[in-house]
């Protein structure tokens, strides 16, 4: 038996593309945010409302990741924002080469902000860098307040946590201790910014828009 030292990063191919994406975006001073959550947390609704309400202020484009269909891209298209759909055909996450190809199909020069809506999954997308400026994790109150404790990786890596569907908290439709979710997320990531929102009623969305506008402004410096 001959032992050979290899010492190679296994995901180096993905990392190479992620680095190229970082450079591509940095040269153009564009902000790119990778949105990650379980299926059904409301990512697409957050995006359509954000695009509609920031019209005239921020020019937003979207890269949609889904295993199958272009149903989400259709919803984005209805807002008139440019959108590219990626179908992963079974893969549970997006990877950097897919983003590299999608960026070439978006009118990047005419945009301020590009959202990547990752495949609905709280585990796998967190392991693949795409070259984004930051990760946004979305947790809806119907999923339970124990998710930061159960799925620590994505909460440890995200810059912003959006706690969505807070309209369900009124009337006791769900048992969700928002303070517990916040405390668990902050234990893993003390820099994480936590914004409770309802993309349905619009509650809290103003804070999210302020954050985005500030972020876009900083990325232009």
């Amino acid at each position: 038996m001959e032992k050979v030292d290899i010492g190679k990063r296994i995901l180096r191919e993905n990392e190479k593309y992620a680095f190229e994406n970082i450079m591509f975006l940095a040269e153009r001073k564009k902000l790119c945010l990778n949105m990650i959550s379980s299926p059904g947390s409301g990512k697409t609704t957050i995006l359509t409302r954000t695009i509609d309400e920031l019209k005239g202020k921020l020019r937003i484009g979207v890269i949609e990741g889904d295993i199958q269909t272009d149903l989400d891209a259709e919803r984005i298209r209805a807002t008139e924002a440019p959108v590219v759909q990626i179908n992963t055909e079974g893969a549970c996450h997006l990877s950097a080469p897919q983003i590299s190809a999608a960026l070439k199909r978006l009118p990047v020069e005419d945009l301020d902000l590009i959202f990547i809506e990752n495949v609905g999954n709280l585990v796998c997308p967190s392991a693949f860098e795409l070259g984004e400026s930051g990760k946004i994790v979305v947790l809806s109150v119907a999923e339970g307040d124990d998710k930061p404790a159960k799925y620590p990786a994505i909460f440890a890596k995200s810059k912003v946590l959006l706690i969505n569907k807070i309209d369900l908290l009124d009337g006791g439709h769900v048992d969700f201790d928002i303070e517990r979710a916040k405390a668990d997320a902050r234990r893993l990531n003390k820099a994480i910014e936590i914004l409770p929102i309802s993309a349905k009623t619009g509650e809290g969305m103003g804070n999210w828009y302020d954050r985005l506008e500030k972020w876009v402004k900083n990325s232009r410096l």
């Binding site: 038996m1 001959e2 050979v4 030292d5 190679k8 990063r9 440890a156 893993l188 990531n189 003390k190």
Partner: peptide
């Protein structure tokens, strides 16, 4: 997530990357 001293105030350090360290080849 807490320090052995009981504190919950800490900073996570960089996680190790995925590395193929070594291969044993048949001779």
């Amino acid at each position: 997530p807490e320090c052995p001293c009981g504190s919950e105030k800490f900073e996570l350090l960089a996680d190790a990357p995925l590395i193929l360290e070594e291969i044993d080849f048949q001779t």
